[in-house]
Nucleic acid binder design. Structure first.
Lengths: 232, 232
DNA sequence: CGATCCACTTGACCAAAGTCAAGGCGGGTG
DNA sequence: CACCCGCCTTGACTTTGGTCAAGTGGATCG
């Protein structure tokens, strides 16, 4: 069942009072959707705001040369398209479930009522947008300065269950082909570079990853030592 | 002198009433700064919000491997760092005047008072953040899917004085080395690819650019025809 | 239990962009 | 007017990542 904590996990709603959260619960729609389910389509006006409870959702664009660009992949606690509800022109991207997901969504009209009624929602909205902005900023920086290998290493570190103590093992959150798109490279490049990272204490078996020492990897990333490998 | 219209050019303030704008004027700081002047530095808490009236300002990060990543370049009517005032941790990037600029800035405390006092400022803030988000989304998309040549062509089109009728001529807004950074490539690549674009009806003399037919260029960009050149 | 499908991997090749190094051109200065 | 300095351009070469094509291996289904 949908719990108050599920909603409060989102920056957008984190500042709401218990009372406000309780009022929210009956007006949201909760759905469980299978991998591959389309949520909304590029060019259509956006009429709902989504919050991911579990699973993963991609935001992407299909360019007119046929290739798909993944803008971002959203996971638990993240909201999509709140900006779209505000700028009311057609939304420039499509959304799709990347891994079986539980989603909560709110109707545009209901959300606008909420926004008008509570200054805390407006505040949450600003905070939420600011965080998205920060995330995209990091993304741009990575695309401009890091090699494919480095972007992969950075990604694996973010997947690393927190603590980052020695020898973390975890599963990749979604398909490798999607990871490749997220990181802005071809699946072949991901494959090859993952193999290369073997020399840096990372082993991959199917979609199970083990990082010998996250701290060491982090330092190597920061100092640009990942480039030339020392064939270990 | 600072005019009400200068402020209203910013999305952030565009919805304010005449009375609110008038109240704003005495509390803002106006400055004219020379190219190269640093505005704020990465890692420091951000204490002002900036609005560019004329000229250009870069937002960048110096990575620990020594290279500079330009996140974005802000021009007339654009605001920087409004998100930073909100997320109150240290700001992750530095700012610098890229071309002699006239700037307006507002103190953090004053802006917070404004935000609390007027729901229209909050609304403007959301709209402004949403636009930044949109801009960065486009950026990510371009970096992931377009070649250097295509990114340059797209950039030149955005510089094209609007109308985009046949044979537009204009000056590059800032140094070529900065344009290269903005587009995520080396100055050498920019230089070479600009030369390549000669075959597509673009001529460059020093920093004066002429586009024979923007429409044609736009179509070539959309259909991916810019890649293989037909040696014309 | 084998056939098939799909996601991923691997290999060989190629094109795009980065690197390093030298050279030109203009603008400012003595 | 000659000099120097920065910015930009050009050239030769290297590296990275993309492309095309074939192969592997696990899962599913008959």
């Amino acid at each position: 069942m949908l719990a108050a904590d599920d909603l409060r996990a989102a920056t957008l709603f984190s500042r709401l009072s218990d009372r406000e959260i309780d009022a929210l619960i009956p007006i949201v729609r909760e759905q469980t959707l299978a991998k591959g389910t389309p949520l909304f389509h590029e060019g259509e006006p956006m009429d709902r705001l989504y919050l991911v409870i579990s699973g993963w959702v991609t935001l992407f664009r299909d360019t007119n040369t046929g290739q798909r660009v993944v803008i971002r992949v959203f996971g638990p606690g993240e909201t999509l398209a709140e900006a779209a509800l505000f700028l009311d022109s057609a939304f420039p991207a499509s959304g799709e479930v990347a891994e079986d997901a539980r989603l909560v969504s709110i109707d545009r009209a209901a959300f606008e009522r909420l926004l008008a009624a509570s200054p805390r929602v407006a505040t949450g909205m600003i905070a939420s947008l600011a965080m998205h902005l920060r995330a995209l900023t990091v993304e741009v920086e990575q695309l401009k300065t890091r090699t494919a290998t480095e972007r992969i290493a950075a990604f694996l570190l973010t997947c690393c269950p927190n603590g980052r103590k020695a020898r973390s093992t975890f599963e990749l959150p979604y398909d490798k082909s999607l990871i490749a798109q997220r990181l802005g490279m071809q699946p072949e490049s991901l494959s090859r570079n993952l193999a290369k990272l073997g020399c840096h204490g990372i082993s991959i078996d199917r979609n199970r990853v083990t990082i010998d020492d996250p701290k060491v990897l982090e330092n190597a990333l920061g100092s640009g030592t990942l480039g030339r490998l020392s064939s270990g």
